[in-house]
């Protein structure tokens, strides 16, 4: 029963891994830029929701769309300020440059967060935060269950957006072959901007959900970037639904290994998966 309980919790957090990875995957797939500050964007989203709750008393459910809107706008600014310069370079040199910019951004964001919110752990504890759905001996925290459902809904919406929306198709075309996309009349820079903003918006959403069901602190960024990266390696690029499933798989694998080998091994399994995938596909993450 402990195993089942652990697996349920693993599945619940896995939904957030999937959501965190979707933004990273979209930006990487379209811009060919690896934003190592993605976890910091999640962290900022979490503090955004935290502030809305502490300062204005907004329920996290109400905060979610506001944080996403704010993150979209922040994504536009970040793109114009930093990443627009990276994508001017050849595709092969972009990753290198984006790593430098990403680490710089991550450090700056971390320092800013420590100043604004101190290094303490925070989380949003609403009146319903402790509510639990009991299925016999299994207890399912309601807030985390709601997070999983919301994460899935967001991924579904993103999937539809990429399939049906004119610019969604343009984003997919740009991901496949930016030159061919440009030759069909797509303003590729606009597609980059939209993909980056949407990726940042998804990070904001993930951060909000993390701050409700779990906790945030200025230093969680790297951990979330790593989780997202492992999921992207696991699921490959191109399919957002696949990315979500990859997140669930990582969550379950972590829970299973924590059960089998003890808590400290929770973090190891992700790296093992990472290495295993890279060995099985030696051309690695960056191969087309």
């Amino acid at each position: 029963m402990i195993l089942v309980q652990q697996l349920v919790l693993g599945l619940l957090v896995g939904g957030l891994y999937g959501l965190a990875a979707a933004g990273l995957s979209l930006v990487f797939g379209v811009l060919k830029v690896l934003n190592v500050a993605h976890g910091e964007l999640i962290m900022l989203g979490g503090y955004g929701a935290f502030w809305l709750w502490v300062l204005l008393g907004f329920d996290p459910l109400l905060a979610l769309p506001l944080v996403v809107a704010g993150a979209l706008a922040f994504g536009v600014l970040l793109y114009w300020g930093l990443f627009a310069f990276v994508v001017r370079a050849h595709e092969e040199t972009r990753i290198k440059n984006s790593l430098l910019i990403g680490f710089g951004l991550a450090l700056a964001t971390h320092a800013l967060a420590v100043r604004l919110w101190t290094a303490d752990e925070r989380s949003i504890t609403t009146t319903y935060a402790g509510a639990v759905l009991s299925l016999g001996p299994i207890a399912i925290p309601l807030v985390r269950l709601a997070s999983l459902v919301l994460a899935f809904a967001l991924i579904g919406a993103l999937h539809l957006l990429l399939q049906r929306w004119r610019w969604g198709r343009a984003i997919r075309a740009t991901a496949e072959d930016w030159e061919a996309a440009a030759l069909t009349g797509i303003d590729v820079r606009r597609a980059y901007l939209l993909a980056f903003a949407i990726g940042t918006g998804l990070a904001g959403a993930a951060g909000t959900l993390v701050s409700v069901g779990y906790s945030i602190s200025p230093s969680i960024g790297l951990e979330w970037t790593l989780k997202a990266l492992i999921v992207v390696v696991l699921a490959g690029l191109g399919s957002m639904l696949g990315t979500f499933v990859g997140g669930l798989v990582l969550g379950l694998a972590e829970a299973a290994s924590a059960f089998a080998f003890g808590g400290p091994y929770r973090e190891v399994v992700g790296l093992v998966i990472f290495l295993a995938v890279l060995v099985a596909r030696p051309r690695g993450l960056f191969a087309r």
Partner: peptide, 14 residues
């Protein structure tokens, strides 16, 4: 240089 992961019709529409 087609978009190989998209349908014929999506390619045309683009």
């Amino acid at each position: 240089r087609l978009f190989g992961g998209m349908t014929v019709e999506e390619n045309l529409d683009l």
